[in-house]
Protein backbone atom coordinates (compact mmCIF):
# COMPACT_ATOMS: atom_id res chain seq x y z
CA UNK A 1 0.00 0.00 0.00
CA UNK A 2 2.84 2.31 0.86
CA UNK A 3 4.35 1.69 -2.57
CA UNK A 4 1.07 2.57 -4.21
CA UNK A 5 0.94 5.85 -2.34
CA UNK A 6 4.53 6.49 -3.36
CA UNK A 7 3.59 6.09 -7.04
CA UNK A 8 0.81 8.62 -6.61
CA UNK A 9 3.35 11.31 -5.80
CA UNK A 10 4.65 11.24 -9.35
CA UNK A 11 3.01 13.67 -11.76
CA UNK A 12 3.21 11.22 -14.67
CA UNK A 13 1.29 8.61 -12.63
CA UNK A 14 -1.34 11.19 -11.68
CA UNK A 15 -1.75 12.16 -15.35
CA UNK A 16 -1.93 8.51 -16.40
CA UNK A 17 -4.58 7.78 -13.78
CA UNK A 18 -6.66 10.83 -14.62
CA UNK A 19 -6.59 10.27 -18.39
CA UNK A 20 -6.87 6.49 -18.02
CA UNK A 21 -9.93 6.61 -15.76
CA UNK A 22 -11.79 9.10 -17.97
CA UNK A 23 -11.02 7.10 -21.10
CA UNK A 24 -11.91 3.83 -19.37
CA UNK A 25 -15.26 5.15 -18.21
CA UNK A 26 -16.08 6.39 -21.72
CA UNK A 27 -15.10 3.05 -23.23
CA UNK A 28 -17.03 1.17 -20.55
CA UNK A 29 -20.21 3.12 -21.28
CA UNK A 30 -19.95 2.85 -25.07
CA UNK A 31 -18.99 -0.81 -24.88
CA UNK A 32 -22.42 -1.82 -23.56
CA UNK A 33 -24.13 -0.34 -26.61
CA UNK A 34 -21.58 -1.82 -29.01
CA UNK A 35 -21.69 -5.31 -27.53
CA UNK A 36 -25.49 -5.41 -27.42
CA UNK A 37 -25.71 -4.15 -31.00
CA UNK A 38 -23.17 -6.81 -32.02
CA UNK A 39 -20.73 -4.12 -33.09
CA UNK A 40 -18.02 -5.26 -30.67
CA UNK A 41 -15.39 -5.49 -33.37
CA UNK A 42 -15.94 -1.93 -34.53
CA UNK A 43 -13.41 -0.77 -31.92
CA UNK A 44 -10.87 -3.25 -33.21
CA UNK A 45 -11.39 -2.20 -36.82
CA UNK A 46 -11.09 1.49 -35.95
CA UNK A 47 -7.95 0.87 -33.91
CA UNK A 48 -6.36 -0.86 -36.89
CA UNK A 49 -7.39 2.03 -39.09
CA UNK A 50 -5.73 4.36 -36.60
CA UNK A 51 -2.45 2.67 -37.50
CA UNK A 52 -2.73 4.51 -40.84
CA UNK A 53 -3.72 7.83 -39.32
CA UNK A 54 -0.92 7.76 -36.75
CA UNK A 55 1.49 6.80 -39.54
CA UNK A 56 0.22 9.69 -41.66
CA UNK A 57 0.61 12.14 -38.79
CA UNK A 58 4.16 11.01 -38.08
CA UNK A 59 4.99 11.13 -41.78
CA UNK A 60 3.70 14.71 -41.95
CA UNK A 61 5.31 15.60 -38.66
CA UNK A 62 1.95 16.50 -37.06
CA UNK A 63 0.45 15.52 -33.70
CA UNK A 64 -1.05 12.00 -34.11
CA UNK A 65 -4.10 12.75 -31.96
CA UNK A 66 -5.28 15.66 -34.09
CA UNK A 67 -4.88 13.72 -37.33
CA UNK A 68 -6.40 10.54 -35.94
CA UNK A 69 -9.52 12.02 -34.35
CA UNK A 70 -11.22 13.27 -37.55
CA UNK A 71 -9.94 10.49 -39.82
CA UNK A 72 -10.93 7.65 -37.49
CA UNK A 73 -14.32 9.31 -36.98
CA UNK A 74 -14.69 9.36 -40.77
CA UNK A 75 -13.71 5.69 -40.95
CA UNK A 76 -16.38 4.87 -38.37
CA UNK A 77 -19.00 6.42 -40.65
CA UNK A 78 -17.63 4.46 -43.61
CA UNK A 79 -17.98 1.23 -41.59
CA UNK A 80 -21.52 2.24 -40.70
CA UNK A 81 -22.68 3.11 -44.20
CA UNK A 82 -20.73 0.65 -46.35
CA UNK A 83 -23.07 -2.30 -45.71
CA UNK A 84 -26.10 -0.37 -46.99
CA UNK A 85 -24.23 1.01 -50.03
CA UNK A 86 -22.63 -2.28 -51.04
CA UNK A 87 -24.24 -5.68 -50.59
CA UNK A 88 -22.32 -6.80 -47.50
CA UNK A 89 -22.63 -7.34 -43.77
CA UNK A 90 -21.15 -5.04 -41.16
CA UNK A 91 -18.33 -7.37 -40.11
CA UNK A 92 -17.02 -7.41 -43.70
CA UNK A 93 -16.97 -3.59 -43.70
CA UNK A 94 -15.01 -3.60 -40.44
CA UNK A 95 -12.54 -6.12 -41.87
CA UNK A 96 -12.03 -4.06 -45.03
CA UNK A 97 -11.50 -0.73 -43.29
CA UNK A 98 -9.20 -2.42 -40.79
CA UNK A 99 -7.09 -4.03 -43.51
CA UNK A 100 -6.83 -0.80 -45.50
CA UNK A 101 -5.69 1.02 -42.35
CA UNK A 102 -2.96 -1.48 -41.57
CA UNK A 103 -1.84 -1.53 -45.21
CA UNK A 104 -1.54 2.26 -45.36
CA UNK A 105 0.26 2.28 -42.02
CA UNK A 106 2.79 -0.30 -43.22
CA UNK A 107 3.33 1.59 -46.49
CA UNK A 108 3.88 4.88 -44.72
CA UNK A 109 6.23 3.33 -42.20
CA UNK A 110 8.31 1.82 -45.02
CA UNK A 111 8.31 5.15 -46.90
CA UNK A 112 8.99 7.24 -43.84
CA UNK A 113 11.79 5.16 -42.45
CA UNK A 114 12.75 7.22 -39.42
CA UNK A 115 9.44 7.18 -37.56
CA UNK A 116 8.84 3.43 -37.49
CA UNK A 117 9.85 3.18 -33.86
CA UNK A 118 7.32 5.90 -32.88
CA UNK A 119 4.61 4.24 -34.93
CA UNK A 120 5.16 0.88 -33.30
CA UNK A 121 5.04 2.46 -29.85
CA UNK A 122 1.38 3.27 -30.62
CA UNK A 123 0.70 -0.42 -31.16
CA UNK A 124 1.14 -1.18 -27.48
CA UNK A 125 0.32 2.18 -25.88
CA UNK A 126 2.17 4.02 -23.18
CA UNK A 127 -0.17 5.51 -20.67
CA UNK A 128 2.69 6.57 -18.42
CA UNK A 129 4.03 8.82 -21.17
CA UNK A 130 0.83 10.89 -21.42
CA UNK A 131 1.69 14.58 -21.48
CA UNK A 132 -0.16 17.25 -19.57
CA UNK A 133 -1.83 18.49 -22.78
CA UNK A 134 -2.80 14.97 -23.82
CA UNK A 135 -4.27 14.27 -20.39
CA UNK A 136 -6.27 17.50 -20.57
CA UNK A 137 -7.56 16.67 -24.04
CA UNK A 138 -8.44 13.11 -23.01
CA UNK A 139 -10.39 14.35 -19.99
CA UNK A 140 -12.17 17.00 -22.06
CA UNK A 141 -13.13 14.66 -24.89
CA UNK A 142 -14.13 11.86 -22.54
CA UNK A 143 -16.32 14.32 -20.62
CA UNK A 144 -17.91 15.28 -23.94
CA UNK A 145 -18.61 11.62 -24.63
CA UNK A 146 -20.23 11.22 -21.18
CA UNK A 147 -22.42 14.24 -21.84
CA UNK A 148 -23.47 12.90 -25.26
CA UNK A 149 -24.33 9.50 -23.78
CA UNK A 150 -26.27 11.09 -20.95
CA UNK A 151 -28.29 13.31 -23.28
CA UNK A 152 -28.96 10.57 -25.82
CA UNK A 153 -29.32 7.83 -23.20
CA UNK A 154 -32.91 6.87 -23.93
CA UNK A 155 -32.45 7.08 -27.70
CA UNK A 156 -29.34 4.91 -27.53
CA UNK A 157 -31.17 2.46 -25.26
CA UNK A 158 -34.24 2.31 -27.53
CA UNK A 159 -32.23 1.78 -30.72
CA UNK A 160 -29.99 -0.77 -29.04
CA UNK A 161 -33.01 -2.73 -27.87
CA UNK A 162 -35.03 -2.65 -31.08
CA UNK A 163 -34.51 -0.13 -33.85
CA UNK A 164 -37.86 -0.88 -35.52
CA UNK A 165 -39.83 0.00 -32.40
CA UNK A 166 -37.54 2.97 -31.82
CA UNK A 167 -38.41 4.27 -35.28
CA UNK A 168 -42.12 3.99 -34.49
CA UNK A 169 -41.43 6.08 -31.37
CA UNK A 170 -40.19 8.82 -33.72
CA UNK A 171 -36.49 8.13 -33.11
CA UNK A 172 -34.15 8.16 -36.11
CA UNK A 173 -31.92 5.08 -35.63
CA UNK A 174 -29.52 6.19 -38.37
CA UNK A 175 -28.71 9.38 -36.41
CA UNK A 176 -28.23 7.43 -33.20
CA UNK A 177 -25.98 4.94 -34.99
CA UNK A 178 -23.86 7.77 -36.40
CA UNK A 179 -23.52 9.28 -32.94
CA UNK A 180 -22.48 5.91 -31.51
CA UNK A 181 -19.94 5.36 -34.31
CA UNK A 182 -18.33 8.78 -33.91
CA UNK A 183 -18.19 8.52 -30.11
CA UNK A 184 -16.59 5.09 -30.48
CA UNK A 185 -14.01 6.52 -32.85
CA UNK A 186 -13.13 9.25 -30.33
CA UNK A 187 -12.74 6.77 -27.49
CA UNK A 188 -10.68 4.40 -29.63
CA UNK A 189 -8.23 7.16 -30.54
CA UNK A 190 -7.94 8.18 -26.89
CA UNK A 191 -7.76 4.54 -25.75
CA UNK A 192 -4.79 3.88 -28.01
CA UNK A 193 -2.68 5.95 -25.63
CA UNK A 194 -3.78 3.73 -22.72
CA UNK A 195 -3.45 0.20 -24.06
CA UNK A 196 -2.33 0.61 -27.67
CA UNK A 197 -3.96 -0.14 -31.01
CA UNK A 198 -3.78 -3.88 -30.63
CA UNK A 199 -5.59 -3.94 -27.31
CA UNK A 200 -7.89 -0.93 -27.33
CA UNK A 201 -10.94 -2.96 -28.33
CA UNK A 202 -10.59 -4.81 -25.03
CA UNK A 203 -11.46 -1.59 -23.18
CA UNK A 204 -14.72 -1.52 -25.12
CA UNK A 205 -15.57 -5.20 -24.91
CA UNK A 206 -14.39 -6.67 -21.58
CA UNK A 207 -16.06 -4.33 -19.06
CA UNK A 208 -19.32 -4.43 -21.01
CA UNK A 209 -19.41 -8.19 -21.30
CA UNK A 210 -18.50 -8.58 -17.63
CA UNK A 211 -21.26 -6.17 -16.60
CA UNK A 212 -23.76 -8.04 -18.78
CA UNK A 213 -23.03 -11.21 -16.80
CA UNK A 214 -23.89 -9.48 -13.56
CA UNK A 215 -26.61 -6.90 -14.11
CA UNK A 216 -30.36 -7.16 -14.48
CA UNK A 217 -31.16 -3.66 -15.68
CA UNK A 218 -29.75 -1.54 -18.48
CA UNK A 219 -28.87 1.35 -16.22
CA UNK A 220 -26.93 -0.81 -13.76
CA UNK A 221 -25.17 -2.58 -16.65
CA UNK A 222 -23.94 0.79 -17.92
CA UNK A 223 -22.79 1.94 -14.50
CA UNK A 224 -21.14 -1.40 -13.71
CA UNK A 225 -19.34 -1.45 -17.05
CA UNK A 226 -17.98 2.07 -16.48
CA UNK A 227 -16.92 1.21 -12.91
CA UNK A 228 -15.26 -2.07 -13.90
CA UNK A 229 -13.44 -0.35 -16.73
CA UNK A 230 -12.10 2.40 -14.45
CA UNK A 231 -11.14 -0.12 -11.78
CA UNK A 232 -9.26 -2.25 -14.29
CA UNK A 233 -7.22 0.75 -15.42
CA UNK A 234 -6.37 1.82 -11.87
CA UNK A 235 -5.57 -1.71 -10.73
CA UNK A 236 -3.72 -2.57 -13.93
CA UNK A 237 -1.64 0.56 -13.73
CA UNK A 238 -0.55 -0.02 -10.14
CA UNK A 239 0.21 -3.71 -10.74
CA UNK A 240 2.25 -2.72 -13.80
CA UNK A 241 4.19 -0.12 -11.82
CA UNK A 242 4.67 -2.45 -8.87
CA UNK A 243 5.88 -5.42 -10.91
CA UNK A 244 7.49 -3.39 -13.68
CA UNK A 245 5.17 -4.78 -16.38
CA UNK A 246 3.79 -3.13 -19.53
CA UNK A 247 0.77 -1.09 -18.38
CA UNK A 248 -1.49 -1.70 -21.41
CA UNK A 249 -1.18 -5.47 -21.33
CA UNK A 250 -1.64 -5.56 -17.56
CA UNK A 251 -4.85 -3.52 -17.81
CA UNK A 252 -6.24 -5.94 -20.39
CA UNK A 253 -5.37 -8.96 -18.23
CA UNK A 254 -7.05 -7.37 -15.20
CA UNK A 255 -10.15 -6.95 -17.38
CA UNK A 256 -9.92 -10.60 -18.37
CA UNK A 257 -9.63 -11.57 -14.69
CA UNK A 258 -12.79 -9.56 -13.88
CA UNK A 259 -14.63 -11.32 -16.68
CA UNK A 260 -13.49 -14.76 -15.45
CA UNK A 261 -14.62 -13.88 -11.94
CA UNK A 262 -18.03 -12.83 -13.28
CA UNK A 263 -18.37 -16.20 -14.99
CA UNK A 264 -17.53 -17.98 -11.75
CA UNK A 265 -20.16 -15.88 -9.95
CA UNK A 266 -22.78 -16.87 -12.52
CA UNK A 267 -21.92 -20.55 -12.33
Amino acid sequence: MREVMEFLRFAFVQRALLAGVFIAVGCGLLGVFLVLRRHSMMGDGLAHFAFATVGLALWLGWAPLWVSLPLVALASLVILHLPSRAAMYGDAAIGMVSAVGVAIGVLLSSLGGGFSVDLFSFLFGDILAVSRAEAGLAVGLAAGVFAAILLAYHELFAVTFDDTSARVAGIRPERVNRLLAVLTALMVVLGIRVVGMLLVSSLLIFPAVTALQLCRSFRTALLASAALSALSVVLGLFVALWLNLPAGATIVLVNAAFFSASLLRRA
Binding site: A152, H154, E155, F157, F161, S165, V168, A169, R216, F218
Partner: peptide, 26 residues
Protein backbone atom coordinates in the same frame (compact mmCIF):
# COMPACT_ATOMS: atom_id res chain seq x y z
CA UNK B 1 -31.42 -9.30 -28.35
CA UNK B 2 -34.37 -10.11 -26.08
CA UNK B 3 -33.12 -13.19 -24.18
CA UNK B 4 -29.76 -11.70 -23.17
CA UNK B 5 -30.66 -8.04 -23.02
CA UNK B 6 -30.02 -6.49 -19.59
CA UNK B 7 -33.27 -4.63 -19.12
CA UNK B 8 -36.07 -4.85 -16.63
CA UNK B 9 -39.70 -4.97 -17.66
CA UNK B 10 -40.17 -1.40 -16.37
CA UNK B 11 -37.26 -0.08 -18.40
CA UNK B 12 -38.52 -1.77 -21.54
CA UNK B 13 -42.11 -0.55 -21.16
CA UNK B 14 -40.73 2.91 -20.37
CA UNK B 15 -39.25 3.02 -23.87
CA UNK B 16 -42.80 3.34 -25.16
CA UNK B 17 -43.02 6.73 -23.42
CA UNK B 18 -40.27 8.16 -25.62
CA UNK B 19 -42.77 8.50 -28.46
CA UNK B 20 -43.73 12.09 -29.03
CA UNK B 21 -41.02 13.47 -26.73
CA UNK B 22 -38.34 15.77 -28.07
CA UNK B 23 -34.59 15.50 -27.53
CA UNK B 24 -33.26 14.68 -24.98
CA UNK B 25 -36.42 12.60 -24.36
CA UNK B 26 -36.09 12.48 -20.60
Amino acid sequence: AFPKFPATVSEMVGLGRLAGKRFPRL
